[in-house]
Design a protein around this nucleic acid. Structure first.
Length: 575
DNA sequence: TAAATCTCAGGCCTTGTCGG
DNA sequence: CCGACAAGGCCTGAGATTTA
């Protein structure tokens, strides 16, 4: 199943067939003229690995490259043996193809420079678009052309020019905190970012004072639930949860980095091959879940260095490989967001971190959770006890237990639950608890919410529970497009993570409600769908042109727990 | 021109602040 | 005290941009 030991391995192995000349042929001086502008970039050592005492290569990373790839004709590495263990990459720009673009940038800058400029190192990059004016090196050159010089040279790569009433301020990247000190009057909102303090609050304002006495027969309901639990079609069959040896993942990463180093040593340029995963056309629906289409060269993507298109992506990939190695080495776990903040100076946005984590997940052939990259936002409640390798035990019988993120350290799960109920929204989750649903349904069960679109950890947890406990799973979502998508997400997996669907999808989960057809039946307030949603619906499902939300079902205090859910279960009214 | 890549926007949730 | 708003955090997908 995973390429660690199987014959699939070579698909994911890096290939190193190209030389530097193949990818970046020498510049023909007769045809193209180069301008003197050069940019310098920091190079970060990706890791300090100690295995076999091998000193690992310094690989380049271009955090703030502002020129388009078409403008770069030559990339060379100049090792200056600097104290911080970094080296400098020099890029030469081609003035022929994008001469007008550079001229425009230069003209814009000169226009800006005709005003007074103050330079400060206490600022930070306020707006991305303003920072795109150019690199520091380039600005230094430009400043000199108008007889101005840089006052303070301790700055790094990022710069921004802020316009104000009297002229322009030039800001360089530092931390948000220092920015606050000099920028509060323009953007007090930023102040809010760093102020902490947690006051949990549940919004129950939609609950009306009315009550509904209508109830289901408890005995009939019990019988019905027993029938459901005996239905083999709803159980997860004989699937098992795979456990990955993290040492193997580490050695796989080590091998990849070793080979990259080797290729650099031989003055060739490496190329990593990963599977494309973000297109529906590359996925197939098999075994009741979304899966990668069978392997095919056309479905693989090459990321090479210094390719014009994927150079930065390659560098991010190598950098993160090193980081993941260290995470595994130290048994440390981080969320994508934490990683983003740790390497914020290297990336422009969170998406880049998400993508590179996905790439590594594909390259190594395991899920992000096996790379110690975690997410945790889901909640669980119910008759459930988790036993940990450390000897501790977690009892989930307290309202809204946070789903643990170190699922691989659970060695045993005890539960007498009859089924698992997955709820889309956290507000409904709390609402059901408040209505005392656990006692009203006559049979013990486990309730889970992923708080909207479920994160990977929640889906992994659900998969683990349904597989190990062999329980049927029911999903309760809004009768709108997004609710249905969330249901499909739990059940069949997502396109982006189709290579992980075997470990994430729960194909035996059933859609308990709320069905669009029930909008009229229960008198839920509905809104007409928008044109944008019509378009999206055509790509997923077709249903009557109305949408509602579960809140519409909360007509009175206990409608959900005393009428809707028992009747649905009693009638076995699910899809 | 088609394909690959990147950016941005949207959905779900949360918490915190501010003004009525 | 409550609602509006804006940030963080997770996910997805469309469209713009760039390359081959």
């Amino acid at each position: 199943m995973l390429p660690l030991d199987s014959e699939q391995t070579e698909i994911f192995e890096p290939s190193f067939e190209k030389t530097l000349d193949d990818i970046a042929p020498p510049l023909d001086k007769n045809q193209k003229t180069t301008i003197s502008t050069q940019t310098s970039f920091e190079i970060f050592t990706p890791m300090s690995m100690t295995q076999n005492s091998v000193a690992y290569p310094q690989l380049p990373y271009f955090p703030s490259q502002r020129f388009t790839n078409s403008q770069v004709t030559e990339t060379s590495i100049v090792n200056e043996n600097r104290e911080d263990n970094s080296v400098v990459v020099s890029q030469t720009l081609n003035s022929q193809t994008d001469n007008t673009d550079i001229s425009n940038q230069r003209a814009n800058l000169l226009e800006i420079l005709s005003h007074d400029i103050t330079v400060t190192t206490d600022g930070f990059k306020i707006f991305n678009n303003l920072a795109k004016v150019g690199t520091v090196k380039w600005l230094e050159t430009a400043l000199s052309t108008v007889g101005k010089s840089v006052i303070n040279k301790t700055w790094k790569n990022e710069v921004a020019i802020m316009e104000h009433q009297n002229g322009y301020d030039l800001y360089v990247d530092k931390t948000v905190k220092t920015a606050l000190e000099c920028f509060t009057k323009e953007d007090t909102k930023i102040c809010k970012i760093i102020k902490n303090g947690v006051v949990p609050k549940i919004d129950l304002s939609y609950i009306s004072k009315q009550d509904n006495k209508k109830k289901c027969s408890v005995r009939q309901l019990k019988q019905s639930i027993d029938t459901i639990c005996a239905n083999e079609d709803l159980l997860s069959g004989c699937e098992t949860i795979q456990v990955i040896d993290k040492k193997k993942i580490q050695s796989k990463i080590y091998d990849i980095l070793s080979k990259i180093y080797e290729v650099f040593e031989n003055n060739k340029m490496p190329c990593l091959v990963v599977r494309r995963s973000y297109k529906a056309s590359l996925c197939v629906y098999e075994n009741e879940r979304l899966q990668c289409a069978s392997s095919d060269a056309g479905k693989l993507r090459k990321i090479h260095f210094p390719g014009k298109l994927c150079c930065r992506r390659f560098c991010r990939l190598v950098y993160m490989l090193g980081k993941v190695y260290n995470l595994l080495e130290n048994n440390q776990k981080l969320t994508k967001r934490e990683i983003y903040y740790q390497i914020k100076h290297l990336v422009t946005n969170q998406e880049q971190v998400n993508r590179v984590v996905g790439d590594i997940s594909q390259l190594v052939g395991v899920g992000p959770w096996d790379l110690n990259i975690i997410s945790h936002s889901g909640l669980v409640y119910g008759n459930l006890r988790l036993f940990w390798a450390s000897g501790e035990m977690t009892n989930c019988n307290t309202p809204a237990t946070l789903i643990p993120y170190d699922l691989d350290e659970i060695i045993e799960i005890h539960s007498t639950a009859n089924f698992i109920l997955v709820v889309e929204k956290e507000s409904i989750f709390h609402k059901l608890l408040e209505e005392d649903l656990p006692n009203k349904l006559a049979r013990p069960f486990i309730m889970i919410t992923g708080k909207g679109v479920p994160d990977i950890n929640t889906r992994l947890f659900l998969k683990k529970l349904s597989t190990m406990l062999k329980l049927p799973v029911f999903v309760l979502v809004d009768p709108d497009l997004y609710g249905i998508r969330i249901m499909l997400n739990y059940r069949f997996g997502t396109i982006t993570n189709c290579h992980l669907s075997e470990q994430l999808a729960v194909p035996n989960a059933r859609w308990l409600g709320v069905f669009p057809s029930e909008i009229a039946k229960f008198g839920i307030q509905f809104q007409n769908i928008t044109q944008r949603e019509v378009k999206a619906i055509n790509e997923t499902l077709k249903y009557p042109g109305k949408k509602g939300s579960i809140e519409g079902l909360v007509k009175n205090n206990t409608f959900l727990s005393e009428a809707y859910l028992p009747v649905k279960l009693f009638n076995q009214d699910f899809i």
